[in-house]
Simulated scan of single mutants.
Amino acid sequence: MLLDPIERASARLDATLGETMRWLTQESGEALFGSLVGLAIYVVLLLVLWGARRLLPRAAESWRGLARSVVDRTLQVFLIAVALDGATHAVAPPGVLMQLVDKLLVIAVAVQAALWVRELVVGLVRRKADSSPEDAIALGSATGVINVLVNVVVWLLAAILILDNLGVNVTALVAGLGVGGIAIGLAAQGIFSDLFAALAILFDRPFRVGDTISYGTSTGTVEHIGLKTTRIRALSGEQLVMANTKLLEQQVANLHLIEERRVVLTFGVVYQTSPDQLEALPGALQAIVEAQADCRFDRAVFTGFGPSSLDFELVFFVTVADLAVMLSARQAVGFAVVRRLAELDLHFAYPTQTTFTAAPDGRLIDPTQISEKSAKH
């Protein structure tokens, strides 16, 4: 039973060699022309490969260096297969020989494409890792996983293409791989989701190691970006460990990228303030902000009538991103506001409630007026 396929393959090989030898003997001129065409194609491909290597540097951190690494993975077998295919199409060799060359070309193209794709993907990851020391540390463990995944995918696709070209029925194989892949994906769904989230963080760079971020109700400095979790040092000192998927599901504010800080101060003055004093207050607030270093005035406006105060809002920007500078500027502006209101004889309002008494005729009597009259008597 096992000898039948071997015998059939041996008989097919003998037939191919026999037809090829008869064609070479009977059509020697055509065979010589085809050989010259194949040799010319091979030389041209070598010259193209040599020129590409001369034009592209070996620097791994540049795009041209990445292209050079891909070019260096070109196999001589691939060039020979392309040259043979061109030679067989330039002449009329036996059909068996042409089929053999076509199959050789498909195999060579599948292997060469797998090598190019693998080198391109791994080169992109390597280039990303070499862009900064932080990314190199973070991508150190991810690179190994990426290499395994890329190798499995590209070589599996190449093997399926080669087997299909050789006449093997790959339908059952593809179906089995699909079912197995679904089972593995469902079993490791959490792991893969965190892995892809880690790659998204590393490649999209919403934040990096050393950045201070705010998410949910927590704020801290990123210490490590792993394959499954990200470790964050909270402002209160403890280390927070967040799953990458859970972290990206939230709105993350990168405080490290702040260019300037906005400060809003709201306060109220008593209702006994005169209209002239109220109109002069926005200008006085603007002068206070403009007198401070690293501060840019935005607005100072009357915002409404509160339950026990006339409310104002002062908005300005601190043009330095440092948090300590913002806190110092906010404190200086606050103290200056208190001092200026005292100079203008303006009083801050605080929650108060006044009870009015009704006279026998229904008129409301202000209790403060009664107290004033009692004091005079």
Rank of each mutant, 00 (worst) to 15 (best):
L227F: 00
G210N: 08
V241T: 14
Q239S: 15
T221L: 05
T219R: 15
L240D: 11
M242N: 05
T230A: 05
S236K: 07
Y215A: 13
G216I: 07
G220R: 12
N244W: 07
A243N: 13
Y215G: 10
L227E: 01
S218C: 10
R208S: 14
T221E: 13
T229R: 04
V209R: 09
T221S: 09
S214P: 04
G226E: 10
R231L: 09
T230I: 07
L227V: 02
V209D: 04
E223D: 08
I232C: 02
R208V: 12
E238R: 06
R208K: 13
T219W: 11
P206W: 00
G237H: 07
Y215Q: 11
V241Y: 05
R231H: 10
L235G: 15
T221A: 10
T221Q: 14
L235A: 15
F207T: 00
P206R: 01
A243V: 05
D211F: 02
L227G: 01
L235I: 14
L240H: 09
G237Q: 09
I232E: 01
T217N: 14
S218W: 09
G216P: 04
G220Q: 14
S236R: 08
T219C: 13
T229Q: 05
P206M: 03
T230V: 10
G220N: 12
G216L: 08
R231E: 13
T219A: 15
P206V: 01
R233T: 02
V222N: 00
T219N: 13
L235T: 15
G226N: 09
R231G: 03
L227W: 00
H224T: 11
N244T: 06
G220M: 12
F207Y: 14
Q239T: 15
T217H: 13
A234L: 13
T212F: 01
R231Y: 05
